[in-house]
């Protein structure tokens, strides 16, 4: 099968003018990759530690409550909220809705505001409210 290698691939970061919808789109991919690699590795480690010995779970807990561990968890929880809200935006657009320029832009901004607020609320609750 002959293939024309000079044909372009999917347009990359460099060809688009940066705007809220474009940033949201690329964030959807970036957070998706972060959740795939970091999130699933962590979920698997957590479950294995839970199923394992007390010292295995202590190792996980120590890593998760270390400042660097908390930083990773904050990043992953923000990724989860951003990807989830952006995913809802995608589902709305898949239904054919939300393509009007202003609506589309506002929905993109809403995912940023929502993910930031949810991340702050979650960690305020964990670090301050709960007192754990």
């Amino acid at each position: 099968m002959s293939r024309n290698t000079s044909r372009p691939l999917s347009p990359h970061l460099t060809v688009w003018k940066w705007g809220p919808h474009m940033v949201t789109s690329i964030l959807h991919r970036a957070t998706g990759v972060a959740l795939s690699i970091g999130g699933l590795a962590l979920l698997t480690w957590w479950l294995l530690a839970l199923a394992g010995s007390a010292s295995a779970y202590d190792d996980f807990s120590a890593a998760a409550s270390h400042p660097l561990g908390i930083l990773v968890l904050v990043g992953l929880s923000w990724s989860f909220f951003q990807h989830t809200l952006s995913g809802v935006r995608h589902l709305i657009m898949d239904s054919g809705d939300g393509f009007e320029l202003k609506t589309n832009k506002n929905m993109a901004y809403a995912t940023w505001a929502g993910s930031a607020l949810l991340t702050i609320a979650l960690w305020a609750y964990i670090l301050l409210g709960r007192g754990a």
Binding site: L47, L48, A51, G52
Partner: peptide, 10 residues
């Protein structure tokens, strides 16, 4: 598979 194994073990 590892994650599901852990769940089953739990």
């Amino acid at each position: 598979a590892l994650a599901l194994y852990a769940l089953v073990r739990i």
